[in-house]
C-alpha cells in the first residue's frame, strides 16, 4: 500500500502538521500561529505541509487530528489526544524512551510509555497553569525579553534566585520585584527555569522517573530548560529539533496504524 498520511496538531498557540511517506519518512512539515479561526488554521497547516512535501491533497490517504483543537480538524478521519501522539512520536524518534515530558503553552505532561510507544501512565499539571510554558512566556515579557532569548541567558547566571511563586500571574510580580531589588535578570531567569524544572520533576515522579527521558513540546527548544531539567533529574534528556512536531508526527503514525488495520 503506497500510503501517505498526515498528522495535524492544533495546540493553544501553534498549529503543526507532518506528512509521512510510506517508509515513515517525513516528506513535509509546517508550523504556524493559531488565530481566531481554528478550522481555517488547521486547513492552512495541512496545505503548508503538503506544499513543503510537494504533494497535493488527494495524495494523502489518511489524516489524524490531535491537540486542543483536534475536533476542529474536520477534514481528518481520526482524532487522538496529544498524550498518545507524543508517546508514539517520542518512541519513533528515540525508541528507548520510557518517559516523555512535554511542556506546552497551557499544560505540562509526564507520560510513561512502554517499548511500543503505548501510554502506560500519565500525569498533567493540576489545578492551574502553574509551571507551563506560559509561565516562561509571561516572565520573559515582564523582563522585557523575547521568549526565545531567555534560555541561553539563563545559562549565564551566576547565582540563581529562588522563585517560589508557582502561579503564573504572581510569578510575574515576583520577577518585577526582583528587578526592582537590582537582581541580575540572568539570575532571575535561571531561577524561573529551575522552578519549572522542579514542578516538572514533581509531575514526572507521579508516573515514575525511568530513563530514557525524552523532552518534547515548544519549551524543549529552550536550552536553558533542557539544562535545568537535566540538572534536576541527574540523567540526560533526549531532545530533538523535531520535538515541536512530535504531536503531529505521533498523530500521523497513529493514522498509519489505523490505515494498516493495526492496534489504533
Amino acid at each position: 500500500m503506497t500510503a501517505v498520511v498526515a498528522g495535524v496538531d492544533i495546540g493553544s498557540t501553534t498549529a503543526k502538521c507532518v506528512v509521512l511517506g510510506e517508509d515513515s519518512r517525513i516528506l513535509g512539515k509546517s508550523l504556524s500561529v493559531v488565530g481566531v479561526d481554528i478550522v481555517k488554521d488547521a486547513e492552512r497547516a495541512l496545505e503548508a505541509a503538503l506544499a513543503d512535501a510537494h504533494l497535493s491533497r488527494p495524495e494523502v490517504s489518511f489524516i489524524t487530528g490531535t491537540g486542543y483543537g483536534r475536533y476542529k480538524v474536520y477534514f481528518g478521519q481520526l482524532v487522538v489526544t496529544e498524550i498518545s501522539c507524543h508517546a508514539r512520536g517520542a518512541n519513533f524518534l528515540f525508541p528507548g524512551t520510557r518517559l516523555v515530558v512535554d511542556i506546552g503553552g497551557q499544560d505540562t505532561k509526564a507520560i510513561r510509555i512502554d517499548d511500543k510507544g503505548e501510554v502506560v501512565d500519565f500525569a498533567m499539571n493540576d489545578k492551574c497553569a502553574a509551571g507551563t510554558g506560559r509561565f516562561l512566556d509571561v516572565c520573559a515579557n515582564a523582563l522585557g525579553y523575547d521568549v526565545g532569548e531567555i534560555g541561553p541567558l539563563s545559562l549565564q547566571a551566576r547565582r540563581a534566585v529562588k522563585v517560589t511563586s508557582t502561579c503564573t500571574v504572581f510569578a510575574e510580580s515576583e520577577v518585577t520585584s526582583y528587578v526592582s531589588r537590582g537582581k541580575d535578570p540572568k539570575d532571575i531567569l535561571a531561577g524561573l527555569h529551575a522552578s519549572i524544572a522542579n514542578r516538572t520533576l514533581s509531575l514526572m515522579q507521579r508516573v515514575g522517573v525511568e530513563p530514557e527521558v525524552t523532552f518534547t513540546g515548544g519549551v524543549s527548544q529552550n536550552e536553558g530548560m533542557v539544562h535545568a531539567l537535566h540538572r534536576r533529574l541527574g540523567v540526560p534528556v533526549n531532545v530533538s529539533p523535531l520535538s515541536q512536531y512530535l504531536g503531529a508526527l505521533g498523530a500521523a503514525l497513529h493514522g498509519r496504524e489505523r490505515l494498516s488495520g493495526g492496534a489504533a
Partner: peptide, 12 residues
Amino acid sequence: EISRADAALGSF
C-alpha cells in the same frame, strides 16, 4: 523544595 508531596496530597 516541594516536589513529591504535591503529587501525594493534591493541589488545594
